[in-house]
């Protein structure tokens, strides 16, 4: 349905996106992952015809979006990373305005507005002014506005930041439902790995303006098939211990987490004993140890050397 060909964007000598090729089939749900500044939003803006690529093209059903932005605009819904709403208007007034610029009117518009408000769970508070909403509620209206006109392709750029877990689950389930039952094609950018795991069939991982890995969730995880993750909870941080472990033979990566440490080690390596020894040496108190198969988060870490969220 959609593909990009060597998309590139240079902002005043700074390359934000550098030769991105990705595709989406109709009805697919695709995730786009990458750390801050990777170029995700820029890629999305080029796909949705909001900014002009420095080079490369976007093709929708084989036609160039660059030549005729109209073709993608007609089928597209975008949830921007920013809150793109009139702050002084109520949720209802916003949706009414955005619905009408898409040519909806009358009863149909009214029904649609109530439907999307239901999805984002703001039906009761629709007559309140957006400025007075909490950040999470504003995000929800921001999403609702992109779904009014029943787009074939929904692009969401970190749509759930700041939304409480319950509403988030509800929204994700709805998007998943639209994707599976109605054949809505979804491109989803998020920092929440579990969202992408839940929602997306296929994932692109992006860093420094380039796609560094892609495939189904299982394909990506198999990149780390030879590894496992050891989570160690400690009573407090031990910086020296980290340094020691980092130089320890056989441990591929040592990352500090909130609770303690995360180690990536070759599968089947019997390292636990020596890790305990090192910990002993530093008089570190180990509260809990957990050995896991890799997650997408780990894949991401492996590929970029960075955590998704700081």
């Amino acid at each position: 349905m959609l593909e990009t060909e060597e998309l590139k964007k240079v902002f005043k000598g700074k390359t934000a996106v550098n030769g991105v090729n990705l595709y989406m089939d109709k009805g697919e749900s695709v995730g786009l992952l990458g750390p801050n500044g990777a170029g995700k939003s820029t890629t999305i803006s080029m796909i949705s015809s909001l900014i002009k690529p420095t080079s490369g093209d976007v093709k929708l059903k084989g036609q160039s979006v660059l030549k005729d932005p109209g073709i993608i605009r007609n089928v597209l819904g975008v949830v921007p990373q920013e809150i793109a709403l009139y702050e002084e208007l109520t949720a209802y007034e916003n949706l009414k305005f955005f619905g009408r610029i898409y040519g909806l009117k009358g009863k149909e518009l009214e029904a649609k507005i109530q439907e999307v408000l239901e999805i984002v769970g703001l039906k009761e508070r629709q007559k309140e002014i957006v400025k007075t909403y909490s950040g999470g509620m504003q995000r929800r209206v921001n999403m609702a506005a992109a779904m009014l006109h029943e787009p074939e392709l929904l692009i969401m750029d970190e749509p759930t930041v700041g939304i409480d877990p319950q509403s988030r689950t509800h929204i994700l389930d709805t998007v998943r439902h639209l994707n599976q039952e109605k054949g809505l094609t979804v491109l989803y950018t998020s920092h929440y790995m579990e969202e992408v795991e839940r929602l997306c069939d296929r994932v692109y991982i992006m860093d420094h303006g380039q796609i560094i890995a892609s495939g189904t969730k299982d394909e990506l995880k198999s990149i780390l098939s030879g590894e496992e993750t050891i989570l160690i909870d400690l009573d407090r941080p031990y910086p020296d211990l980290v340094t020691d472990l980092q130089s320890h033979d056989g441990i591929r990566q040592t990352i500090e987490t909130e609770k303690g440490l995360k180690l990536i080690v070759p599968k089947g390596s019997k390292l636990l004993g020596s890790i305990f020894q090192v910990a002993e040496r530093h008089q570190a108190q180990i509260l809990n140890v957990n050995v896991k198969v890799p997650t997408l988060e780990d894949v991401f870490l492996h590929l970029t050397g960075r955590k998704l969220r700081d």
Binding site: L50, I83, F98, I101
Partner: peptide, 16 residues
């Protein structure tokens, strides 16, 4: 403000 808060983009995206 419309431009700054990306509402303008929304309007453009509606193919107006």
């Amino acid at each position: 403000v419309e431009k700054k808060q990306h509402v303008f983009n929304r309007i453009i995206l509606s193919n107006q």
